[in-house]
Design a protein around this nucleic acid. Structure first.
Length: 429
RNA sequence: GGAGAGGUGGCCGAGUGGUCGAAGGCGCAGCACUGGAAAUGCUGUAUAGGGGCAACUCUAUCGAGGGUUCGAAUCCCUCCCUCUCCGCCA
């Protein structure tokens, strides 16, 4: 959520920055509401001050011995009642303005960071670096896609999963299930050694949590909802972890708070029909290990580099070639001010595919969620960052495609062997 | 699910209609004392919003929301949460 004061005093700045996202917003209406609300508040509090004075006078008169039903006291009572009525009217108007203002502010995305490159869409994203040597087919060799390999090795079951749930759900089996579990443990351990505190949060979250991290009100159709309760299936661990500290004031010396959370994630993937319908890439339910920082506003820029490096470390430890791109202003997610995407090389598909997204949200989520930090006297909103470290299913896909061997087996990176129990997945005889 | 108890500042805890944003204590900060420290003493110490260059000032907030009243931490209603006991349960 954007700052109301900024809206009142400098809406041109907001308009200009949102234009970098490709949005053409007219803020005159919202600005008017914000100003009217402030004026009303002023009138109301003056009236209340008058009412308080009258209340005190009555108390003093009665204590000094005046009869409670004397005309003097009665007059003050009447005056107090008149003020009470006026205040009630103003409060009513104020409440309406306040909720309209909040409603509108909640639909506005974050301002892009000045650092974020300008651009319209993903074609304007900027490649920052590539790591590793992308595997290309040898002469005469055909590299399979991950779902082909997985099918051959019996790692998952698609058709029967429709029976259990519906399309875009997958059941992992045997070595597939074990590899998924191994990857989750591997990632949690890796980040744990770097000072991240492990969290296993609720994956049913309430509306306030989804609003706090930016998924509501605008993206309700992206999440699964439990109709009888105010609960939703979390689309990312970012949601429960943000709300872990919702409404808190955190002493600055405790910052940064660094969390690593494994959760299943649930997304409707509305509007992506027909894309990636085979395999592990775009499912309604997938596993993700998420990195999350609460940090002091002065340090969020370095934190962003660090959280991205921590996500990259997983790819490097797994020897998966990837590239790091920076999203342009027009491709940024709703809550992000600046984002690096990590894209892993998929030799079978012959393309880089997103496997991690590392964003700094500045105070956007902190304002929605009321999370502040206090150093010395000053209390201010802190900054939040999140990054996938990594999407587990996509990591498995990358391992399968990158490790595929001519004999049908898949070689796994050495770092994973202790977790998986073997350095390769054998083809069935 | 049933029965009971309770939610007050960073923490503990008093306050059951009137000058209470709230005693007292702890903690924290500053000053004094000291060679330095401890102990002691004094002073200060909630949050949000509005106005003001500032000193400062106004408003709201005692779990949340409503109500009664000139006036509510205190009385009434609804909800939420925590604890204890019982039941059920992985």
């Amino acid at each position: 959520m954007l700052d109301q004061r900024l809206l009142r005093d400098n809406p041109e700045l907001i308009t200009a920055q949102l234009a970098r996202r490709g949005l053409d917003v007219d803020l005159t209406g919202v600005q008017l509401i914000a100003r009217q609300e402030r004026d009303l508040e002023q009138q109301r509090s003056e009236l209340q001050a008058e009412g308080n004075r009258i209340g005190k006078q009555v108390g003093q008169l009665i204590q000094a011995g005046a009869a409670p039903n004397s005309s003097e006291v009665q007059e003050l009572r009447d005056a107090g009642n008149r003020i009470k009525q006026q205040v009630a009217v103003l409060e009513e108007e104020e409440k309406v303005l306040e909720s309209r203002l909040r409603e509108q502010l909640l639909t506005l995305p974050n301002l892009p960071s000045p650092e974020a490159p300008d651009g319209r869409d993903e074609r304007d994203n900027v490649e920052v670096l590539t790591w590793g040597e992308p595997r290309l087919p040898e002469a005469g060799e055909t590299l399979a896609e991950h779902w082909q390999i997985a099918e051959r090795l019996g790692l998952f079951e698609s058709e029967r999963s429709v029976r259990i749930a519906q399309s875009r759900f997958v059941t992992l089996l045997g070595a597939g299930a074990r590899l998924e579990r191994a990857l989750i443990s591997f990632m949690l351990d890796l980040h744990g050694r770097k000072g991240y505190q492990e969290v296993l949060p609720p994956i049913l979250v309430n509306s306030a949590s989804l609003t706090g991290s930016g998924q509501l009100p605008k993206f309700a159709e992206e999440s699964f909802r439990c109709a009888d309760d105010d609960l939703w299936l979390t689309p990312t661990a970012e949601v429960p972890v943000t709300s872990l500290h919702r409404g808190e004031v955190i002493p600055a010396e405790q910052l940064p708070l660094k969390y690593v959370a494994y959760t299943p994630c649930f997304r409707r993937e509305a509007g992506s029909y027909g894309r990636d319908t085979r395999g592990l890439i775009r499912l309604h339910q997938f596993n993700k290990v998420e990195l999350y920082w609460f940090c002091h506003p002065d340090h969020s820029a370095e934190a962003h580099q660090q959280i991205t490096a921590d996500a990259e470390a997983v790819l490097q430890a797994l020897q998966l070639p990837y590239r790091k791109i920076e999203l342009c202003s027009g491709d940024l997610g709703f809550s992000a001010a600046r984002t690096y995407d990590l894209e892993v090389w998929l030799p079978g598909a012959g393309a880089y595919r997103e496997i991690s997204s590392c964003s700094v949200c500045a105070d956007f989520q902190a304002r929605r969620s009321g999370i502040r930090c206090k150093d010395g006297k000053a209390t201010q909103l802190l900054h939040t960052l999140n990054g996938s470290g990594l999407a587990v299913g996509r990591t498995m896909a990358a391992l399968l495609e990158n490790g595929q061997q001519a004999d049908g087996s898949v070689m796994l990176p050495a770092a994973l062997a202790p977790y998986f129990g073997s350095d390769r997945i054998q083809a069935p005889q």
